[in-house]
């Protein structure tokens, strides 16, 4: 099943976010996880040999409905990519600020909070 690949990607992202010490790599792990979710959504709507879900003039609507892929997941994925962009930007900005304060990207040295 091709869906399994999404979960493999998700697990790679999770592994990256959990085990890596460099905060930039953690952010990369986060984005990988997001992309796996996006990919999963896209695959849900995919249909083998389907046409793009765009209606144009002189098109037979019933035939179009029978062959087009599901457009809704594509709209959802577009939205979630935008959200992912925002989160990634913020994360990178925080990384830069952290580097400014601590002088390192190593998560094991960024440890002021305890308890």
């Amino acid at each position: 099943m091709i869906y399994t690949l999404c979960f493999v990607l998700f697990l790679i992202g999770l592994y990256c976010a959990i085990t890596k010490k460099n905060i930039v790599k953690i952010v990369i792990g986060l984005t990988l996880m997001e992309y796996s979710a996006n990919l999963f959504l896209i695959l849900l709507g995919y249909r083998k040999g389907g046409v793009a879900p765009i209606v144009s003039e002189n098109m037979n609507i019933t035939e179009f409905l029978a062959t087009s892929v599901d457009p809704l997941p594509q709209a959802l994925v577009l939205t979630s990519i935008v959200i992912g962009l925002g989160v990634t930007t913020l994360a990178i900005a925080i990384c830069i600020r952290l580097y400014e304060k601590y002088g390192t990207f190593d998560i094991t040295e960024i440890r002021r909070l305890k308890g």
Partner: peptide, 13 residues
């Protein structure tokens, strides 16, 4: 910043 980064990572997951 440290707290925010921790929050961001866990909450994004």
């Amino acid at each position: 910043l440290e707290a925010s980064f921790k929050y961001l990572v866990l909450s994004s997951i």
